[in-house]
Each structure stands twice: as C-alpha cells, then as structure tokens.
Design a binder for these strands. Structure first.
Lengths: 243, 243
DNA sequence: CACACCACTTGAACATGTTCAACTAGCAGG
DNA sequence: CCTGCTAGTTGAACATGTTCAAGTGGTGTG
C-alpha cells in the first residue's frame, strides 16, 4: 500500500502552503488516535447524530474539551472515516487494475470496489454526505481542504485510463480521469439515495453505465462526433476558468 | 399563474393520503404566516445559521414554543422559501416559452430564469442545500414529500420540449423532460458551489451546455448513434425499477 | 537538579434547537 | 349567561455542540 497515506496517520512535515500545525508529541498523537477511533466506532454503532461529543469523550476516558483540542468540530471527526475508506479503495483498485487491461472491466471493477468499501456504512454515510454537501464545509469533496484526497481519488481513475489498451482522442484522454471522478461522485450521490436492498440499483447503474461510457469513448474518435467532442472539451475549459 | 400553488398558501381540504392535520382557525393561520414571513426575512437579512429560533419568535412577537406548534423544526421553515421560488420560476418560464419555438433558446431561457429567481439567495441557498441533501429529509428533491414540487418542476421541462419544433427520437422525447430536470439539479448543484462573482461560471456553464445538448439531441437521430441511444434508454429503464 | 515553557487536559459555562406541562381564550352547546 | 372543549400560547427546562480560563505534567536548558 504505497502512494497514498492518510494525512492523519503520521505527523507529516509541515508543508509550506498549509496552515502551521502545532508540533505534536507522542502522547498527543496517541490521544488523538484514541478519540478518533472511539468516535468512528460509536458512529458505526449508533449513527452520527445519535453520538454525542460527551459520549465520545466519556467512552474514550477524556474530557469533552480534549476532543476539541484535536478536532475543530464534530464534523471534522468524519474526515478520518473519509481518509480511511479512500486508502482502502485505492488498495483494492490496485489489486484489480493489476490483472486487467481493457478499459470497461477496469472501470467497472474500480467502481464496484468503491461501493464495496463504503457498503457497511451506507446509513451512516447518508448523514456524512449531508455535512459534506455544505459548500463551505471543509469536508466538501470540492473544498480546498480535501484537495489532497480529491487528487488521490482522481489518480485512481488516471490509472484506470492510462493502464488500459483503449485508443482514444488524446485531448479526451487528458480530461477523462477527472470526468470519471465526477461520474464517480454522481454514483456516490445515487448510492446515498439508493434505498433498494443491498443498494442493488447502484450496482445496476454501474453495470449499465460502464459499457455505455466505453462505447462513447470509442465513438469519440468518429469523424461526425469530433465537433461535439471539441465542444465538450471547450465547455470544460470555459467553466474551469477563474476558480 | 395556474397549475402550481404553494401548499401552505391556503388551508387545503385534508387529502385522503396525507397525515391528518389539526383543523386550523383563522387566528392560527395568521400566526403561522406571521412566523413564516418573519423567519424568511431574517434568513435573508442575516443568513440561516445566524438566525436563532429565539430571534424569530421575538421579532414576530410570539413565544419560541409557538413556532414549534406550527413548524416541526427550523428546517421546515425553509419549505416556504422552496415553494415560493418554484412558483416564480414557473411564471417566468411561461413568459419565455410563449415567445420562442426553438429548443435551444427555450431551454437556455428557462435555465437562466431559474438562476435569476434564486440569485438573491445564493448564500442562504447553500445552507438550504445542505439540509436538502440529507436523503431522509422531507426537503430532499427526491423525497416523497417534495414529489408534487418535483413533478411541477419536471412539467416545466416537458413544456420546453413539447412546445419546441425540434425533431427527435420519440423514445427520447418521452424521457427528455426528466433528464433535463436532472441536468437542472446538476446546474443548481454547480451554482451552489459557484463562488465566482455573480456566479458567472454558472451562466457560462448554461450557455455552453445548452448548444451541446441541442446538438446531441439532433445527433440522436443519426444511424450510428441509435444503438448508443437505445443503450442509454435501457439503462434509465433498468435503474428506475423497484424504486 | 531546578526552572521555565508549552503541549496537553480539564470541566464548568455558554448558545441554541427542541420539548412539554401548564395556561388562555374563543367558540359551541345547553 | 354559564360551561366545557380544544386550538392556540407560553416560557422554563432540557440536550448537545462549542468555548475558554485555569490548571498539569513532561521535556529541554542552564
């Protein structure tokens, strides 16, 4: 498991751009982990809203204020969950990508793996999603704070594309990873709302959408579609400006 | 302005399916309106999070508990906002659709009108969106409670398609309104996250996406694309099953 | 070894959404 | 006009996320 590590796992060197973190000693790191793990366990057992900060503190054997020393808010505790699943998804994806060269099964495998990882937390993830949807929230997938996690996620889809034997328009190839990630966000959105048993509708969505994407990507080299493709790429370019 | 009325405007007859509401006398209705209007005004002036229930009650000259007699929670106050903008958008859309027969400008006009209606509430809408994103929330655009509002919104896009002179595949024509509504939800999502001045990136997105959709819809009648189109329609069908 | 600094810890206090038992008042029936 | 019913109203009490001033203890330095 190389390449992606959760930001909280080890006290990384302070990066130039990032806001200065206080130095942390061994004891502090231990307490931080204790609080985080206790919180995630309680979230899983009782749900997010039903878990009070007092309960977390009590269960972890610390004072309430101590939790706030390490985490800015209750929502920030979710970031741990976020990072952890990201890492597991990455590992599962590498497993799959190592043994498959065609675009469609590569993409399909990675998407299903992503759902697999999150499946045990479906009910909890819905609440999580609510807080993530707030644009100003640091947990938003589009926020600056989650930028590293986002980049890591996009990197998975870059692997999906680059490692495949599919022939496609070079311009499209450059944009495709980010587009696939966007699609993945859409799948997650669908999944969060999916109340069917075992979220099988989401599985069907993936199984149906992947061949479609595969076909569209192939068609992208067609002469009739070139103008449309250029138009799509131009739109992306235009919209992306002054972020 | 026919067809769409806000649910809260007049004390409608108790519908068979709906949960039994307490009978409400004139005085009660008046108080309810007073609280709702006061709340929406304060939301606009100070923002949602910054407006406390105590402030609403005080400003309206009632006790805190009284607000909870009429509204189950603070979030439920938002529904009024929701309904109101829906109605205004509908009216604006009818204005535009009356004078335009081509698909692209019809769609473009309706989308821009939707943004126009919501523009004054951009910062507030972000918070609103957060609560709407919770799948279990009655405010979610996909929830059963907001089903009437959703149907009304889709109806706008049905008008956009049906009233246009565009020639398109009959199967696609049937599905297009709902797809356009889904796209509209996407635009809203983009808009909520759009921090550019005046949300001009959203405007650009609309201006860029509309001709693209127009082109794709035209291309849908092309022979090479028929299989792809059928595939898309089949996917929609599959995913929609056991809702 | 003593001292000072600072990471770390505490728990009471605060702010705010929500609940609830008690009260009020206006209308219907006698 | 009295009486009772119930929609309507009240505000204190409660639950919970968050803050903060006051410690505490370990670590590096003279």
């Amino acid at each position: 498991m190389t390449g992606v590590t959760t930001a909280a796992a080890e006290p990384a060197e302070p990066q130039p751009g990032a806001p200065a973190e206080k130095p942390r000693r061994a004891r502090g790191e231990q307490t931080r982990q204790l609080i985080l793990e206790t919180a995630l366990r309680l979230f899983r057992e009782r749900g997010y809203a039903e878990t009070t900060m007092r309960a977390i503190a009590k269960e972890a054997g610390v004072a309430v204020g101590n939790a706030y020393y390490y985490f800015d808010s209750k929502e920030h505790l979710i970031q741990g969950f976020y990072d952890r699943n990201q890492t597991i998804h990455r590992a599962a994806a590498e497993q799959i990508l190592a043994g498959e060269k065609d675009l469609a099964p590569r993409l399909r495998g990675v998407l299903h793996a992503g759902i697999d990882v999150n499946a045990p937390y479906h009910s909890f993830a819905a609440t999580f999603f609510k807080t993530a949807a707030e644009p100003s929230s640091p947990l938003s997938p589009f926020s600056r704070e989650s930028s590293p996690a986002r980049e890591a996620a996009i990197a998975i889809f870059r692997d999906v594309v680059d490692g495949s034997t599919a022939k496609l328009d070079p311009e499209l190839r450059k944009e495709l990873p980010e587009l696939l990630w966007l699609g993945w966000m859409g799948v997650i959105l669908f999944w969060v709302y999916d109340k069917s048993p075992g979220q099988r509708r989401t599985r069907r969505l993936i199984d149906g959408a992947v061949p479609l994407i595969d076909r569209l990507v192939s068609l992208s080299r067609l002469r009739v579609l070139r103008p449309a493709l250029r138009q799509v790429l131009a739109l992306i370019e235009t919209v992306r400006k002054d972020d």
